[in-house]
């Protein structure tokens, strides 16, 4: 646990404001590029913003002496991840098999977009499993 400095230039509030603000601007830039038919410029703004916000989010707690994140933040992340995985797993297990059976019976048609969502969720679960395995090696 590191010592803290209330006079530090970067406070927790400013840190969050910077990360969320730059991240929000990046998303807005991407959407603006999409709407204004400036796809490359929008993508550039998004990538720049995402990397800057991500860099600040990861590096500031390491470099800055003030307490920008602590154990409760990690606990919140853990709980939110657990809830997300739980909801996705319950919905996935309860809906996806039924979808495929109904599609096989020609009651519904699984479109390309739905297939994309299913594949993305499956890939995320696979990635979660890999990350879980990595995390487990440290505990």
């Amino acid at each position: 646990m590191t010592a803290t400095n209330t006079n530090a230039t970067l406070t927790r509030r400013r840190y969050r404001g910077l990360v969320y603000g730059i991240g929000g601007l990046a998303v807005l830039g991407l959407l603006a590029g999409f709407v204004l038919d400036r796809h490359f410029a929008g993508t550039l703004v998004y990538l720049l913003g995402a990397w800057i916000a991500g860099g600040i989010a990861v590096l500031a707690p390491i470099w800055i002496e003030a307490t920008l994140q602590d154990e409760r933040d990690w606990e919140l992340h853990n709980r939110a991840s657990g809830i997300l995985v739980g909801i996705t797993m319950v919905l996935g297990l309860s809906i996806l098999p039924a979808l495929y059976v109904l599609a096989a019976g020609n009651y519904i048609e699984i479109t390309g977009a739905v297939s994309g969502v299913i594949l993305t969720l499956s890939a995320l679960f696979l990635l979660y499993g890999v990350c879980f395995g990595l995390a487990k090696r440290r505990i």
Binding site: T4, T67, D70
Partner: peptide, 16 residues
Amino acid sequence: GALADAVGVTRQTINA
């Protein structure tokens, strides 16, 4: 906030 600074966590954690 002062206690949070003293033990190295955020004020929100002490509050919680």
